[in-house]
């Protein structure tokens, strides 16, 4: 088993190796829904939530697959379980809190194809995290994703007011700002294990 402390797992997942800015995971929602601060924070919340549930499920599946000695089923099982989890979470939220359901809207089903979720499951397996470490890792990754998304949304709200040359408008200026943001996050490198 892996002996890394919970705190260092958390800091690593959220800041040092930020999922969006260091691993390039979840770029689609990062570029797609970072237009407004409010939607960005809600999307971040939904992703964090699904990440933690997916992480718990993945831990169980991994143990089960080891038991029946079928590691080649890992990827297929993860994908199916994540898709099913998102579906169940969606139905659950719809029943218990229609307000939250409306607020999340289309983002919830889209999370299924968010590569950051699958990556949480794969990374925790590759690094042999134990149960607590897995949950903390998922929480850190989710919060790191939310942080990156909200910072980007803040930047883009400011960019609306700036005069940008027409050639770089839209995706391009967003990518360049993401690059600058990524450079800034490199400053956290010293914090990691």
């Amino acid at each position: 088993m892996n002996e890394t402390s919970l705190w260092s797992v958390f800091v690593n997942a959220s800041l040092v190796n930020n999922f969006v800015l260091a691993y390039f995971l979840g770029i689609c929602p990062f570029l797609g829904v970072s237009g407004k601060l409010a939607t960005a924070s809600r999307m971040g919340g939904a992703v964090t939530f699904v990440m933690i549930i997916a992480s718990v499920c993945a831990y169980g599946i991994h143990a089960l697959l080891l038991l029946i000695d079928a590691p080649y089923l890992q990827l297929i099982a993860y994908v199916v379980v994540i898709a099913a989890t998102v579906q169940i979470v969606e139905m659950f939220i719809k029943k218990t809190s229609p307000t939250l359901f409306r607020a999340l809207g289309i983002f919830l089903p889209l999370i299924t194809t968010n590569c950051a979720i699958l990556a949480v499951a794969l990374f925790q397996t590759n690094r042999a995290y134990d149960f607590m470490q897995s949950i903390v890792f998922a929480l850190g990754a989710g919060l790191g994703f939310t942080l990156a998304l909200m910072l980007m949304a803040g930047l883009r709200e400011k960019l609306e007011l700036a005069s940008v040359p027409s050639l770089v408008q839209g995706t391009i200026v967003t990518l360049i700002s993401a690059g600058v943001l990524s450079l800034a996050f490199m400053g956290f490198a010293g914090l990691g294990a």
Binding site: I172, V173, G179
Partner: peptide
């Protein structure tokens, strides 16, 4: 070295998209 870092990826993609848009 920055080109090998994550930031370089964002910058390079941004530049290529600019070239293609042009």
């Amino acid at each position: 070295v920055v080109m090998l870092l994550p930031a370089g990826g964002f910058f390079t993609l941004g530049l290529w998209l600019m070239v293609f848009k042009r």
